[in-house]
Nucleic acid binder design. Sequence first.
DNA 1: ATGCAAAATGAATAAATATACAATATGAAT
DNA 2: ATTCATATTGTATATTTATTCATTTTGCAT
Lengths: 149, 149
Amino acid sequence: MNREQRLLLIERLVRQNAVTTQEELLMLMEGAGMKCTQATLSRDLRQMGISRGFDGRGGYRYLLPERREEPDEPVPGRETEAITAMTWAKGMLLIKTPPGFAPAVAIKIDRAGRYEIAGTVAGDDTILLIPRDGVSNEAVEECLKTIFG
Amino acid sequence: MNREQRLLLIERLVRQNAVTTQEELLMLMEGAGMKCTQATLSRDLRQMGISRGFDGRGGYRYLLPERREEPDEPVPGRETEAITAMTWAKGMLLIKTPPGFAPAVAIKIDRAGRYEIAGTVAGDDTILLIPRDGVSNEAVEECLKTIFG
DNA sequence: ATGCAAAATGAATAAATATACAATATGAAT
DNA sequence: ATTCATATTGTATATTTATTCATTTTGCAT
């Protein structure tokens, strides 16, 4: 009912859900028994510094102030694995991990022995995955889902 | 004009000005002799991860994707000497260093947060630098000059 | 309690941003 | 060169978000 509780709820909802619009957040709030109008929500978000950014995969997402850069979970599904972001470039897949995690993740990929994946090179927090020629991006992403799913 | 130049201009303008709306950015672009529509700009911004956030004092502002903040360089300039050779191969730049130096050099490149560079992978004495799709070799080399020059 | 000022809110609307669609350009393969 | 696929872009529009204005609530000093 009061403002303080509403702000706390908003923060929690934004942290736990991939909220893409204020309308969507309003629904969640209503589901939690707290409702207000979009106007109020807009003001609340500004006050808390919660802004609409990108989820790293072409979508929008509201982000908390501190870490308004990196996708925290929006990778194929496996946040349990240390993959924080993926980007296709030059026909290869760049996989980002927290510092130090790349070798472990790369080893897991290598050991899967998938035909679609020619090989990987791991740095400290980045893995370069080189697909076999003629293999589609989608096929590789399917592989990863299999390996980590 | 071409897309690559437009993206680079956008990044520069957003970095150097406190842009609050896309319309405003369009004006700046036109002033720089590069024009497009708001629709195209919206798409460009999404692609580059440049989103509208807050300036910390109640106002709005477009912000570049955050890069990791770095403590100061222990030995400035040392990395430049650590590059012993560079070769383009398969659309990527292979950078050779003395054994053990690759990670330090790669970190410096990463921290520059340049749009042109999608990412790097460092082994022990070799770095694989992957340009973002559509960025020319020359543009990447300019980047490196900026970073190390 | 009463009155007053400041804060909070909603309804309506303005402002800003994203997208559907159609057209054009670019590139790869034949 | 021709075809086909894909990418890029603008126009028009839809969607989303911010703000204005009026009203209500809250806190505080009488």
